[in-house]
């Protein structure tokens, strides 16, 4: 005999749904706890790791870069504050603050010769000179991180890429598209001429001149009249500022 669907079935159904919700919540809670436990274990491990490898983190640039990456993955920022756990353990906040000050110093000093654009490799060379042999080694990754922090100060510091070159810019105004084209035309030899620029860009002479003049006024381009045709030198690409 077939029994119809009675009130009991509805009650069963409701009870079942309730139980399901309760169980779901319980599972979720357990999962959350597990994840939180895992995260906290991970954080403890990371802190242990930092303590244990403090010397390497401070002295080996590659090691430091990996460590920074690892911290970023789990949302810890060793550079966030000088008072943070990381700063206390590693003195790492201070490391980047010092580096930042040195970068500002070098870029401002050479601004008169390069107009505020300095090639990364040249900056690294000067940093190494300035810091001396006994200081911890500095990598490009460190410079980029230190400049990221400087960017918050809105002093116009940033790392820019031009035609396969990495440059550090220390002026608030970005290069215009035309100025960037001049820079590209200078290429690896670091200079261009009016004819060459016109051929490369297809611009009329007046537009070429305007772009070159603006770069000269900004102190980024120096001229050389010792050849057949006036050469416009992009100082940032010469790596020959003050020794």
């Amino acid at each position: 005999m077939r029994r119809g669907v009675g009130v009991g079935a509805f009650q069963n159904q409701a009870r079942f749904t309730q139980t399901l919700a309760a169980t779901g919540a319980a599972i979720q809670k357990t999962q959350m706890e597990t994840v939180q436990r895992q995260m906290s274990t991970f954080k403890d491990n990371l802190e242990d790791f930092a303590r244990k490898h403090r010397e390497q983190i401070n002295s080996v640039p590659e090691f430091r870069a990996r460590f920074n990456q690892m911290c970023k993955t789990m949302g810890a920022d060793p550079l966030a504050s000088n008072k943070s756990f990381w700063a206390k353990i590693l003195g790492i906040g201070e490391f980047y603050t010092d580096l930042g000050i040195q970068i500002v110093d070098i870029c401002y000093t050479s601004r008169a010769t390069d107009g505020g654009l300095l090639e990364m490799s040249e900056l690294l060379r000067r940093l190494r000179n300035m810091r001396g042999k006994n200081a911890h080694a500095v990598s490009q990754d460190d410079v980029v991180r230190a400049i990221d922090k400087l960017e918050l100060l809105e002093g116009g510091f940033k790392v820019v890429e031009f035609a396969g070159r990495t440059l550090v810019q220390s002026i608030p105004a970005d290069l215009t598209d035309d100025q960037t084209s001049v820079m590209k035309a200078c290429g690896t030899k670091a200079y261009t001429t009016l004819d060459e620029l016109a051929a490369e860009t297809g611009w009329p002479e007046s537009r070429c001149m305007a772009a070159l003049d603006s770069l000269m006024n900004g102190g980024m381009v120096w001229v050389d009249d010792g050849g057949k045709q006036r050469e416009y030198w992009m100082m940032a690409l010469t790596a020959m500022g003050e020794a």
Binding site: A112, T113, Y191, M216, N217, G219, W222, V223, D224, D225, G226, G227, E231, W233, T238, A239, M240, G241, E242, A243
Partner: peptide, 22 residues
Amino acid sequence: PSYHNLPPFYTLQPNLETQTKQ
């Protein structure tokens, strides 16, 4: 110094600020 090998170093720069530095 390295800038002694830089050709524009031998041309008096028209931009006055740059020229002073030079």
